[in-house]
Structures are given as structure tokens and as C-alpha cells.
Amino acid sequence: MNKYPAIHQAALNLKGATHDYKEEWGSDRYFVGEKMFAMCGTNKEGRDILTVKVEPNQGEILRAENPAIIPGYYMNKSHWVSVLLDEEKNDDFLAKLLAHAYEQVLRKLPKYRQKEIEG
């Protein structure tokens, strides 16, 4: 059972999004076109985090504006941010981050895959 049903639902409401659970990491992972756009798990301190793909300049802005947003845990720090879920509880904001992450990944897929996904 997913600990954050609002995050899970917001991610899966995105067209063509899929989900798996990576046992070794204890993480829910979200994909579009076989590429990951978000992951929900814990960091080494055991804090719940949502890690999402972002435009590099967007990541810097988000971190500057919101203390709950940190560089992407175990990810490329310029392309991913992690959100400390015990500090950021706004589901609408988290849904917007997920949608942004999804768009980042979708736009990088080959055009034929984008068309398949978008129907």
C-alpha cells in the first residue's frame, strides 16, 4: 500500500504513466515511455522524499524558494530535486511538480513515442 495515495494518484493520472515498486530501494517509481520521472521513497536519514526530474534552472529556483526542496537524492543534482514530505504537504504543489517532471521526460522521448503516449 502506497504511503502517499495523493502522490501516487497524481502521478498515475498523467497520460501513459506507469508505476513499479523497487524492493531494494523501498521506492515507488513512476515512468513515462520506460523513463523514470519521479520516485517516492526515503533518504539515508529515513525521511520520506519525493524525487522528481526538473529543468536545471528550475531546480535552483525551487531550492531557493522552498526549504523542503533539496538536491536530488542519489540523482544528478542539476536535473533532479527531492522534496522532504514531512515538510511539504501541499498535494497541489506536489502534483504540479509531478506534472513538470513528466513533461521533462516526455519531451525527451522520440516523437513517435510521444505520439503513442499522447494518443
Rank of each mutant, 00 (worst) to 15 (best):
I70A: 07
E116Q: 14
E103F: 00
G16L: 02
L50K: 13
Y30G: 08
Y74R: 15
R63S: 14
A101E: 05
V52F: 05
N66M: 08
E34C: 11
I7S: 01
F37Q: 11
D28T: 03
A11D: 10
I117N: 04
N43Q: 13
T18A: 11
L106C: 10
N13C: 09
N57Q: 14
Y73C: 12
I61M: 14
F37A: 12
K35R: 15
I117E: 03
E34Q: 14
H100V: 04
K115A: 11
K108C: 00
A10C: 04
F37V: 12
E24L: 03
V52H: 02
L85E: 03
K77V: 06
A6D: 11
K115S: 10
V81R: 01
E118C: 10
E60S: 14
P110Q: 04
E87I: 00
N2R: 03
I70D: 04
L84W: 04
A64S: 15
E88T: 01
L97R: 11
E45V: 00
L84R: 12
K15D: 09
E23M: 09
D86Q: 07
I69S: 04
W25Q: 14
I70T: 14
I69V: 13
P67S: 13
K44C: 08
H8R: 14
K35W: 06
G119T: 01
Y4M: 05
V52N: 04
I117V: 06
G119I: 00
K111V: 01
K35M: 12
G16D: 08
D48Q: 12
N66A: 02
Y4H: 14
P5Y: 00
S82E: 10
H19F: 08
L14G: 04
V32T: 10
K15L: 09
R29V: 03
F93W: 13
N2D: 08
A99D: 11
D86Y: 01
G46H: 05
F93V: 02
L98Y: 09
K22F: 03
A64Y: 06
M36D: 11
H79D: 08
A17R: 06
M39D: 05
W80A: 07
L14M: 07
T18L: 09
Q9W: 00
N43C: 11
G16C: 07
I49V: 13
D20F: 01
H100G: 12
P56Q: 04
P56L: 02
E23G: 05
S27N: 06
M39C: 14
N76H: 12
Q104K: 14
T51H: 08
R107D: 06
L14R: 10
K77A: 12
E24V: 00
I69Y: 05
L98A: 10
I69A: 05
N43S: 09
P5E: 00
E23C: 03
Y4C: 00
G33A: 09
A99Y: 03
G16Y: 05
L85S: 02
N76Q: 12
T42Y: 05
G16P: 14
F37G: 13
G26M: 09
E55L: 14
K108W: 00
Q9K: 10
R29A: 02
